[in-house]
Amino acid sequence: MEALVALVIGTLTACGVYLTLRGQTFPVVLGLTFLSYAVNLFIFVMGRLAVGMPPVISSVASGYTDPLPQALVLTAIVISFGMTAFVIVLALKARAELGNDHVDGLNREEDAPR
């Protein structure tokens, strides 16, 4: 199971890095989303993988799983969700103001350094 999870995180990160380096804003936003998925999984896994364990110490269970990464990942999900919403709105605004969806807003003469 560890190998599978590691592969998933690695693939998500690789896709995220590739997409973030693209020139259009939409793939960049997707890339950032992939990166945040990868890191959220990564945080979660840092509490070690366990199956069927409660996140509290209990007399009926044979053990427990670390609850802290689960709390951390909730915080990280909320933050990355908010940030993604923000960056989408910003990308739309950039599309409207710059007239194209390139991250550098190219091909407009008035932006050329004078």
Binding site: A76, F86, G105
Partner: peptide, 28 residues
């Protein structure tokens, strides 16, 4: 301002992701 802002936001979001990777590795 929007153009400069887009760069600023994207680069800082990537930075935040790296921050989380580093912090959670230390926690792990």
């Amino acid at each position: 301002r929007v153009k400069a802002g887009l760069h600023f936001v994207v680069i800082n979001l990537v930075g935040s992701t790296l921050f989380l990777f580093a912090v959670s590795t230390l926690y792990g």
